[in-house]
Design a protein around this nucleic acid. Structure first.
Lengths: 126, 126
DNA sequence: ATTATTGTATTAAGTGCTTAATACAATAAT
DNA sequence: ATTATTGTATTAAGCACTTAATACAATAAT
């Protein structure tokens, strides 16, 4: 997985989400050391200040911590990471259901449409 | 339904989405006359210029048309409106599936989690 | 004919985000 | 001891978005 940044939302907010995701799925493992701010910024093709802004927020949330000049590390609190993953999934679900409900679909229709949509995807590789 | 604007994305983009939605679900019926730019801006608590920017884009897309000083109207092309609704639903589905897949859920899990999530909502009113 | 309403355009100011270019203190590496 | 790397902070500039205050032409309403 790489960095995918769009121009229609603040970059720092997208960085926060994507770093959270990388932690959740193990690209940045529990307790591991992160690349430096400057290296991460290069990787993502953003200004170091922008990356720093994102990292500061994640640190504030407890997902990262800093050893002054040794570098930045991912939390070792597995419960915290699991909670983040759970919250992300629930947010996606709520957002999806809200949007589909706005459009006029009821719960049964939402499940049916999603299922048939995934069904179609399956058949593409058969 | 009213206007729900957040500060983390351009307002004009949110206006476009919400006006499209209002057309899709009949708040602004096919062929009907829209309130004036100034009135819509008041309703949504935004600057007339911002509302104008959104309306201009919708007109460019063909969803609205203008009679120079008589006002602005919703298209009478029901197929176009249906297509917009279909696309919106598909976009929501793709976005949801992509996000959940990123998090590590496979197709079956996605359907199962969504179903059980909606199930829980049901039981709240029983 | 006059007035009010329509969409549209322009200019100026303020805000938040991003980049660029530095700089500094702490400490790991040599 | 010296050097390189770390996170962090500051200042200036540019950009897009938003608001505010106007103004204008066309035409519906009176």
């Amino acid at each position: 997985m790489t960095w995918e940044l769009q121009s229609d939302r603040p970059i720092y907010a997208q960085l926060i989400e994507q770093i959270e995701l990388k932690i959740c799925i193990g690209v940045f493992p529990l307790g591991s050391k992160l690349p430096s701010v400057r290296d991460l910024a290069k990787e993502a093709s953003v200004n170091p200040n922008t990356m720093q802004k994102a990292l500061a927020k994640l640190e504030e949330d407890g997902l990262l911590y800093t050893n002054r000049t040794s570098g930045r590390y991912v939390t070792e609190d597995i419960q915290m990471v699991k909670a983040v993953k759970r919250k992300k999934a629930q947010d996606h679900i709520k957002n999806f259901v809200d949007k589909m409900t706005e459009l006029g679909f009821d719960d049964k229709e939402i499940v049916r449409i999603l299922s048939s949509s995934l069904q179609k995807e399956d058949t593409k590789n058969e």
